[in-house]
């Protein structure tokens, strides 16, 4: 069971401002049924640009309902200019915190608000086609702008953080490299703030050979030998490792598969994460 605080629980059990505004001046939607949560936010705005009423409908878990409830409480009585500055972090702070895995609920609140603000100023919502072009995470339909904005607002440093906040990368994981690149991009912008970059330790070639041999012995050879094969280290050039497969492996049709799917990942895990492995035929 999730560890929700009392305020989150209270907003879940007694959500404020649930319902519909038939003649809303602005409407914003975020999330989708497929992802397991969806929020529709409706606003009534007076001629001075002040939000006089806000209502929501949501399909989602406890923290999604609490986040939507908190959002409406945060924005009623404020001007459209003011609410444009509200971020997902303000929703989290209002609720006194959310479990990290549930941060995406606050992000959904922020996205619905952003959509409503755009709608109010007459900007047409991004079409599905437009959105598709910028999608980074195919599984949950998350775009680069969405990722950049949460990374910036919440000072996120890892792919895991991004997944907690936006769901991006939580499915097939094939977009992790792209997410990492976006995190680095934001970190690059904030260079002046001097974000410490994770240091990759530089190994000398001698250290590398030792580590590679050790990994062969402990992790790789037992598996190859079970199939009557073996492996030998031929050369190292920077991060490029050349090996030769012996015994049964040398004639095995799945050798290149073994190389890329088994040997390379093992060397990346135990030696250095930039290693590529190539085979030379004896």
């Amino acid at each position: 069971m999730w560890d929700y605080n009392e305020k989150v629980k209270e907003h879940f059990l007694n959500p404020r401002n649930v319902g519909e505004i038939k003649d809303a001046d602005a409407v914003g939607e975020a999330g989708s049924l497929a992802c397991g949560d969806q929020l529709k936010l409706m606003l009534k705005v007076d001629d001075k640009g002040i939000i006089t009423d806000a209502k929501f409908q949501t399909f989602g878990c406890g923290s999604a309902i609490a986040s939507a409830s908190a959002l409406t409480e945060l924005i009623i009585g404020k001007s459209m200019d003011e609410v444009a500055k509200i971020s997902n972090k303000d929703i989290v702070d209002y609720l006194g915190g959310l479990p990290v895995e549930k941060m995406h609920c606050s992000v959904m609140g922020h996205e619905a608000l952003e959509a409503a603000v755009n709608n109010y100023y007459g900007e047409s919502p991004e079409t599905l086609e437009d959105k598709k072009k910028h999608v980074v995470c195919e599984c949950f339909g998350v775009t680069d702008q969405e990722i950049i904005s949460v990374v910036r607002d919440n000072k996120l440093l890892t792919v895991e953080d991004v997944t907690h906040y936006t769901k991006a990368g939580g499915g097939c994981m094939s977009c992790h490299d792209k997410i990492r690149a976006l995190i680095e991009k934001v970190a690059g912008e904030a260079e002046k703030a001097a974000l410490p970059k994770p240091e990759t330790k530089k190994l000398t070639n001698l250290q590398k050979v030792k580590l590679i041999e050790e990994t062969f012995e402990k992790e790789i050879r037992p598996m190859l030998r079970a199939d009557g094969g073996d492996i030998e280290l031929i050369d190292i050039e920077g991060s490029r490792v050349t090996v030769s497969l012996r015994g049964m492996c040398s004639s095995c049709t799945s050798a290149s598969f073994t190389l890329k799917k088994y040997i390379e990942p093992k060397l990346r895990e135990f030696v250095s994460d930039d290693i590529t492995v190539e085979e030379v035929k004896p």
Binding site: M1, G60, C61
Partner: peptide
């Protein structure tokens, strides 16, 4: 059209 965690929390 309703979500499982919300159901479980209200059942709880």
């Amino acid at each position: 059209y309703i979500e499982g965690e919300s159901i479980l929390m209200l059942l709880s």
